[in-house]
């Protein structure tokens, strides 16, 4: 464990807590893409298949349970909570996220480190996580009015993988044989997808104006 990875995990944890806080306290999911939340639930379900077989540390297991629990409960809130689901804008959240899942699964079947079920599913989760934010970014551009909590959620979610890149650089220089191109490329692509959001997020923060993405 290094400071970059710990900061990344804490930023990731903060992003899910911000979203859960928003949905649970104000009972609204306005501006939140259910599609992205479903993709993230699938990312964690396929990445943490080893939660019962490979014990790495208490920290690792606890964090996996938190990410699994929070992502599935957010999907439940938006789909089934009698108050929250009324604020879900399904006419705007129309990204066909199946078009993301299929290419990721195909790519995982061809480009992976080992051809085993767990490894292919793990690689699928990496590719899927890289593009999981797209429905949310599309929704933000459509709805225009981005409330603070949703903006902070997307910012923290993008920042965590950026911190992981520093973690991979650190591990590359401190651990022998630590070469994982698939993880690194997926992580860089994921972070780059947030580039324009980060730009407008900092602009709005600097000029102290409401965050608005160009249509």
């Amino acid at each position: 464990m290094n400071i970059f990875r710990l900061a990344g995990d804490m930023t990731h944890l903060a992003s899910v807590l911000v979203l859960l806080l928003k949905i649970h306290t104000i009972k609204s999911c306005a501006g939140v893409s259910l599609k992205t939340q479903e993709l993230y639930a699938l990312v964690f379900a396929t990445r943490y298949l080893d939660i019962v077989t490979d014990f790495i540390s208490v920290y690792n297991t606890v964090m996996k349970l938190i990410f699994l629990g929070s992502s599935f409960s957010i999907v439940w809130y938006i789909r089934h909570h009698r108050v929250v689901r009324r604020s879900y804008d399904k006419d705007q959240d129309t990204f066909r996220h199946y078009l993301l899942m299929i290419p990721c699964m195909l790519l995982a079947l061809f480009v992976h480190e080992k051809f085993t079920f767990k490894e292919v599913m793990w690689t699928f989760s990496l590719y899927l996580e890289a593009v999981a934010i797209l429905p949310q970014l599309v929704l933000l551009q459509r709805t225009r009015n981005i409330d603070n909590l949703t903006g902070q959620y997307v910012f923290l979610l993008g920042a965590y993988r950026g911190l992981y890149i520093f973690n991979w650089i650190y591990r590359y220089f401190t651990e022998p044989h630590f070469v994982h191109w698939i993880t690194w490329i997926a992580g860089v692509v994921q972070t780059l997808l947030y580039a324009d959001f980060f730009y407008y997020y900092f602009e709005s923060w600097k000029n102290n104006v409401r965050l608005q993405l160009p249509a």
Binding site: H12, D50, D54, N60, W168, H177, H180, T183
Partner: peptide
């Protein structure tokens, strides 16, 4: 040599 893995990451 045991290959360092990123599977110990979240």
């Amino acid at each position: 040599t045991d290959r360092e893995s990123t599977h110990d990451e979240l």
